[in-house]
Design a protein around this nucleic acid. Structure first.
Lengths: 219, 219
DNA sequence: TCGACGGTTCGAGCGTGATCGAACCAACGC
DNA sequence: GCGTTGGTTCGATCACGCTCGAACCGTCGA
């Protein structure tokens, strides 16, 4: 009668725990179910039911990746509504998230590896040079290049974690490099002084001639 | 922490009864508590608590007028959010409310008298000409003009309803003419063929030279 | 094959809040 | 003054759904 059941949608947002999860996803990143449980301050099992509801309600999209289950906002429209609700409920506290978010999308840490347009570009270039295959696994040529870059490949293989893994970049909808290799690449670039991490943030920034070196390395 | 309590606001919209009331107010009109109870399909006492919550939550504005209590959306931002929620929950059913709403705001029937910009303009002009005082009560001059216009003033005074009453026009935030006189004025203008009522709607439209005559009468 | 870890499903407990009957209050007409 | 009508407040009922413990399932590394 009233057409769409606007109430059902609003009810989903109306629960404090769910609202916290949605707010945590507002920047477009994808988070795991466990991380979302933590930000909401509830147990994993409770979070699981909430996430299922949000997904069935069309507010979230979920995707399994290995052992993890990633969730992100289903569309820009959802983020838009959440933003307007925030604006309406809070008396004009823009919280200066504008510039920070732009930087966040540009280049950021995803747990322990690089994410964002630059990370996607790095993966694509390394594939184009024949260093990595479509699953990010290095070729013989790639192994040589990585060793020369300063990556201790045998040490990475000895770790109990996956050596390398493609990771869907949510802001770019393309894979970037994760796993032990992804972490090692990031660590190496920081060690080389190419980039540094913004304090208390996931934002990564090029430092000095870092960007030029980075581009030259992948030319 | 998350800043504003977006959950609280969404929870208010999330109740079916409240959502029905909000949807009924989407066109910017103001409705009485009783009418809203009816559209929501609940008793008056339940509606009263809901309306109080919506008002405390900043979604509605309420104003007492005589025996009645009118409610309307607190701001355009609220209507905007509701509209987006509808769009998101319902699979693109725009329901062509666009043009109709514009016409609705322009000139409409408010129960039995005229509302909208034209109604406000009429009231202001009649006050400026000295026909009505600030309470819409006619002066001697006004009585003469109204009689000449075809209003049977003695008959109106004989009715058991209030002769005349200012009524806040929600789309204009100014008073227009209500009560027996307001109803008689509308009826007279329809009889004269100046305007007609859109079928199954509150929308009023000028017909033929009606608008010109209307303007000339109030010049 | 095993253990570890992330996530989901099941079950029960439990509090919040929607609801209505009844009483109460205010405004209006007579 | 009284009766009528529109709204609100109070109280009690009752169910929806949020929550977590426990068990279960799938993936991963050894």
């Amino acid at each position: 009668m009233t057409g769409p059941n606007i109430a059902h949608l609003a009810r989903l947002i109306g629960d404090p725990a769910r609202a916290l999860m949605l707010a945590a996803l507002m920047d477009g990143r994808a988070l795991t179910a466990g991380e979302l449980a933590e930000v909401a301050g509830i147990t994993r099992q409770t979070a699981s039911t909430h996430l299922a509801q949000l997904r069935d309600g069309g507010l979230l999209e979920g995707a399994s990746q290995g052992k993890h289950r990633y969730f992100r906002l289903a569309s820009a429209e959802v983020a838009d509504i959440l933003e307007r609700l925030m604006a309406l409920s809070g008396p004009v506290k823009h919280i200066r998230t504008g510039p920070r978010n732009a930087d966040m999308r540009a280049m950021r840490v995803c747990y322990d590896h690089l994410a964002g347009p630059m990370a996607v570009r790095m993966a694509e270039r390394m594939q184009a040079k024949g260093w990595l295959d479509s699953f990010m696994v290095p070729s013989v040529e790639g192994n040589a290049a990585l060793s020369k870059f300063g990556i201790d490949l045998p040490a990475l293989h000895a770790l109990r974690r996956p050596f390398v893994r493609p990771c869907l970049d949510w802001s770019e909808r393309r894979d970037h490099i994760a796993g032990a290799l992804g972490a090692a690449l990031l660590e190496r670039m920081i060690t080389l002084g190419w980039m540094r991490r913004e304090p208390d943030s996931r934002i990564m920034r090029f430092a000095g001639v870092g960007e030029a070196e980075f581009e030259r390395w992948l030319r």
